[in-house]
Simulated scan of single mutants.
Amino acid sequence: MITLGFVYVLAGLAFALFAILGIADRTNPKRFGNAAFWGLLALSMLGGDRLGDFGNGLLVLALVAIAGAGQIGRAPGGDVAPDVQAARAAAHGHFLLLVALIIPAVALAGTFLFKYVPGLADPKQATLISLGIGVLIALGVGMARLKPPLLLPAQQGRRLLDAVGWAAILPQMLASLGAVFALAGVGEVVGTLIGSAIPQGSLFGAVLAFGLGMAFFTMVMGNAFAAFPVMMAAVGLPLLIKHYHGDPAVVAAIGMLAGFCGTLMTPMAANFNLVPAALLDLKNPYGVIKAQIGTALPLLTVNIVFLWLFAF
């Protein structure tokens, strides 16, 4: 049976390859920092279970130290010339888009297929496993048709990660922070504070508090996965599900969507909002956020209304 370990091994091998290619890049003055950062991340993916809690804690501190010291960065040059990009796009046309679409298509198909083929893959992790398989298929199709140098995809992937830097693993770190907050009882404390502000017996008040809370905590913590454990422990589970008998699947799904609205409006979601602005050389570093607010606020309103209508 294919398990989540397959995804960890795949990601670990990719990060290990980035570390090896990075240290071999003598044009990059930060090559040792890049190699150490991606190498440690590869170690966490490939051997995190064997390191134990203390070992993983030291590894995370080392990652923070490398990033905090500014030892991650991309080497100058190495970009494909614009005229070459235009020529390749004209030559291969829509095939380039097809390669990109293979990944979500395989992820969606595998999510449903693995549920009907028992024993083939862990059904609880079907989406992540399918996503990993989709990446491999897209890579194989692209290599077969475009015939680039063998290491070119890895080199360009490494250069992109070097440019993004520590923000590439921000979702993983913030999701872990959410789990820590949940274990520390932050959700219960927040629940007590919010509960005193919700009118007694008001279902819509509880729904509004949950939706707005998901968006707000996502803006503070930078990731809906980090906000979710806190708000579920505070409002979602005790009020919406247990007290008002809401559908857990609907509460969880729409609650996450409400949190994603907060992601669109916060610089704390650096990998989504600040890194693209830097890569696109926007004059305003918050230009992406300004462009998204007009969508985020109406979408948050719709999610709150949908939660009220469909969860109860």
Rank of each mutant, 00 (worst) to 15 (best):
S130Y: 10
Q172C: 10
I289K: 04
T266K: 01
A175N: 08
L113R: 13
L97N: 10
A197F: 00
L4E: 09
L97E: 07
G246K: 11
P229Q: 12
V180H: 04
T266S: 04
L193Y: 05
S44L: 13
A167T: 12
R158Q: 15
L299T: 14
G48W: 03
S196F: 09
G246R: 10
M1P: 07
A89Q: 08
F32Q: 13
F217V: 13
G213Y: 06
Q292W: 01
T127P: 00
I102A: 06
G33S: 15
G187N: 10
N273Y: 00
N56L: 14
L101W: 11
A234F: 09
F114C: 06
A87P: 08
K115S: 05
A138L: 09
Q200M: 02
L128V: 14
M143Y: 09
A163E: 15
A87Y: 10
L274Q: 07
L240A: 04
P29F: 13
D83S: 14
P248W: 10
L58Y: 08
F95M: 06
N284S: 08
A278M: 11
L10Y: 05
I304S: 04
L113P: 09
A278G: 14
G142Y: 02
G255M: 11
L152Y: 11
A105P: 00
F37A: 10
I289M: 07
R31C: 06
L151N: 02
A258D: 14
Q292I: 01
L139D: 02
L97M: 11
P123H: 06
A269M: 03
I103S: 04
A226Y: 01
I198F: 02
K147I: 03
D53C: 01
A121I: 12
L136H: 08
S202I: 01
L280A: 15
A138T: 05
F15A: 10
G33L: 08
L282T: 05
L161Q: 08
F114R: 03
L139W: 10
M214F: 02
F306R: 02
T111D: 12
G211Q: 01
